[in-house]
C-alpha cells in the first residue's frame, strides 16, 4: 500500500555511513551527481558504479529495500528513456511507421537510464542513512554563510525538518482515513478520472483538517518552550568532523578526479 514509499525515509542501522557527518553525506552526494554528469565513456560509469556499490555495501541497508523506493519513479524514468530513444537525431538503425531509432538515441537512452538509476540510488543512500533532523542540521550548517546576505537559513532548515518529520505521520493518517472511508463503501481505484478525483474529497478534507490541527498544536508546543528562531540558539549536539569524514572526503574527491581523468573521452573511444 501507501507505506511502501521508501524514498526519503530513514532506515535504522549501525554502519560507517550512518555515523558520517551529515555535511559529508550531503557534499558527497552532490559530488557523486557531478561525477555522473561528467562521465562520458564506459570507464566513467564503471568508476561511478564502483563507488556506488561500495557505499551500498557499507551502509547496511538491504538492497531490496532501496529498490522498493525506486518503483515510484519508474514512470519518470521510462518517459526519459522513450523520449531519448525516439527524439534524438542521427544515424538511423531501426524504424517503423513515423518513429525511428538512431544510434545516438539508443546511446543517450542507455546513458540516461544508468544516470537516473545511479542518481536515485545515490541520493537514497543519503536519505536512508541520515535522520531528517541531522540532514537539515547539516544543510543549515552548510548554507550558514548565506546568513550574511540575510537569507533566513535557520528558519528554512526548521521548516524543512518539520515538513520531513510530518511525512510519515501524514502517510499513516492517509492510510487510516482511506480505511475509514472504504469501510463506508468509498471506492478509490475505479471509474474515470473525474470520478476518481471526486472520490478523493472524502480523503483530503479530513487529512487537511488534521494537518492544520497538528500544525497549530506544534506551534503552540514550540512557543510553550520559548522557541523564537535562530537568535542566540545553541545546539545539543554540535556537528563535528571526525577522522572517518576526512577519509570519506578523500574517497569521493578521488572518485571525481578519476572520473574526470579516465571518463572524459567520448563514448566510442572506450
Amino acid at each position: 500500500m501507501i507505506r511502501d514509499i521508501t524514498l526519503g525515509q530513514y532506515y535504522q542501522a549501525d554502519s560507517v555511513i550512518h555515523r558520517l557527518d551529515p555535511r559529508t553525506k550531503i557534499t558527497g552526494t552532490f559530488f557523486f551527481i557531478v561525477t555522473l554528469f561528467l562521465a562520458k565513456n564506459v570507464w566513467g560509469y564503471v568508476i561511478a558504479a564502483a563507488f556506488l556499490v561500495m557505499s551500498i555495501k557499507l551502509c547496511k541497508v538491504p538492497f531490496k529495500y532501496m529498490v522498493r523506493g525506486m518503483k515510484a519513479i519508474v514512470i519518470l524514468m521510462l518517459m526519459t528513456v522513450v523520449f531519448n530513444l525516439f527524439m534524438t537525431k542521427g544515424e538511423v538503425i531501426f524504424s517503423f511507421w513515423k518513429l525511428s531509432i538512431s544510434k545516438e538515441g539508443l546511446e543517450n537512452a542507455v546513458k540516461m537510464a544508468i544516470r537516473l538509476t545511479f542518481l536515485i540510488l545515490g541520493s537514497s543512500i543519503m536519505t536512508l542513512t541520515t535522520t531528517p533532523n541531522s540532514l537539515t542540521d547539516g544543510l543549515e550548517k552548510l548554507l550558514g554563510p548565506l546568513k550574511k546576505v540575510k537569507v533566513p537559513v535557520h528558519e528554512i532548515a526548521m521548516m524543512m525538518s518539520i515538513a520531513l518529520r510530518f511525512i510519515p505521520i501524514l502517510i499513516e493518517e492517509t492510510d487510516k482515513i482511506m480505511k475509514a472511508q472504504m469501510a463506508r463503501g468509498a471506492d478509490f481505484d475505479s471509474g474515470n478520472l473525474v470520478k476518481r478525483a471526486k472520490a478523493l474529497v472524502p480523503l483530503l478534507v479530513p487529512l487537511i483538517i488534521s494537518a492544520f490541527r497538528r500544525a497549530g498544536d506544534l506551534a503552540m508546543a514550540m512557543e510553550a518552550r520559548c522557541y523564537r528562531g535562530d537568535s542566540g540558539r545553541t545546539r545539543m549536539k554540535p556537528l563535528k568532523y571526525e577522522k572517518r569524514d576526512y577519509i570519506a572526503y578523500i574517497v569521493i574527491i578521488l572518485t571525481l578526479v578519476l572520473c574526470i581523468v579516465f571518463g572524459r573521452n567520448a563514448w566510442w573511444m572506450a
Binding site: E173, I177, A183, R184, P206, I209
Partner: peptide, 11 residues
Amino acid sequence: LVFQYPEHQLF
C-alpha cells in the same frame, strides 16, 4: 466498522 477517531471519516 467504526474506527477509533471520528475525525478520520467526517468530511
